[in-house]
């Protein structure tokens, strides 16, 4: 069987595979940006001195971080529409579609992880910086946006990017919703043309090249930040 490999299959189906890869990259980027945005809000909520706010945020983050991602994906795809239907009293569950459902799921799931990173980042900024911002008359939101978050973000950039690499790999789980991401596309070709070995090898190589070069980049960035400090 091994003697009978046909890597031509990759070339033949390249446009289809690239469209899958494009979706994977898109979902990763959107989820990373959305996750960073909502994660930052969650981090601010967790650090709030107003208990109901910090407890709610902590509850959400801990829930997301203790449930397997696959379960969260199924939850959002299969159960959330039914829940929305019964809460809103609609006749039918809303038709979100697997691709859009994946966007929402990943943003909400990643927000929990990015929250913890940004929380550490905010806490890494000295209280004196906050004091100086307030002493100049800036309010809480201005101090956060202009003084604290830019520094927290800069300090945490390598960690945020590392989490994004993990996210890039995790995105492949959406193929279980029959979404045509990079893995989904490859699986479909593999089954259609009975070229399982070739396709799975190809996917692995592409993932390796992308992730390895990204993490090399992160390491360089880390070194640069260490020098600035």
């Amino acid at each position: 069987m091994i003697g009978d490999l046909d890597f031509e299959v990759i070339g033949r189906s390249l446009p289809y595979l690239l469209r899958g890869l494009q979706y994977t990259v898109q979902l990763t980027v959107v989820a990373a940006l959305g996750g960073t945005f909502f994660g930052t809000l969650l981090a601010m909520a967790r650090l709030s001195s107003f208990r109901p706010v910090s407890l709610t945020a902590a509850g959400y983050v801990n829930l997301m971080r203790s449930v397997p991602l696959l379960l969260v994906i199924f939850w959002f795809y299969f159960l959330a529409p039914v829940i929305v239907q019964s809460v809103m009293g609609w006749e039918r569950p809303p038709q979100i579609g697997a691709e859009r459902s994946a966007y929402i799921t990943f943003i909400m799931f990643e927000a929990a992880y990015f929250c913890e990173i940004m929380r550490a980042g905010i806490q890494s900024i000295s209280k004196g910086q906050v004091g100086a911002a307030f002493a100049l008359g800036l309010n809480y939101w201005q101090a956060m946006k202009l003084v604290i978050l830019p520094q927290a973000f800069r300090n945490m950039l390598p960690v945020l990017l590392t989490q994004t690499i993990v996210l890039f790999q995790d995105v492949s789980l959406v193929s279980l919703l029959n979404v045509t991401d990079f893995v989904g596309a490859s699986v479909k070709i593999a089954q259609r043309d009975s070229r399982v070995v070739e396709m799975y090898a190809f996917v692995a190589v592409v993932y390796f090249i992308l992730c390895y070069s990204l993490s090399t980049l992160v390491k360089q960035l880390q070194r640069r930040i260490a020098i600035i400090h």
Binding site: S126, G128, Q129, A132, A133, A135, N139, Q151
Partner: peptide
């Protein structure tokens, strides 16, 4: 308070310039 603080200058032991 923001308005009040803006009218009082404050200088700290560790300078607290914004490094970024």
């Amino acid at each position: 308070l923001s308005k009040l603080r803006a009218r009082i200058g404050m200088v700290f032991q560790n300078f607290e310039l914004f490094p970024h």
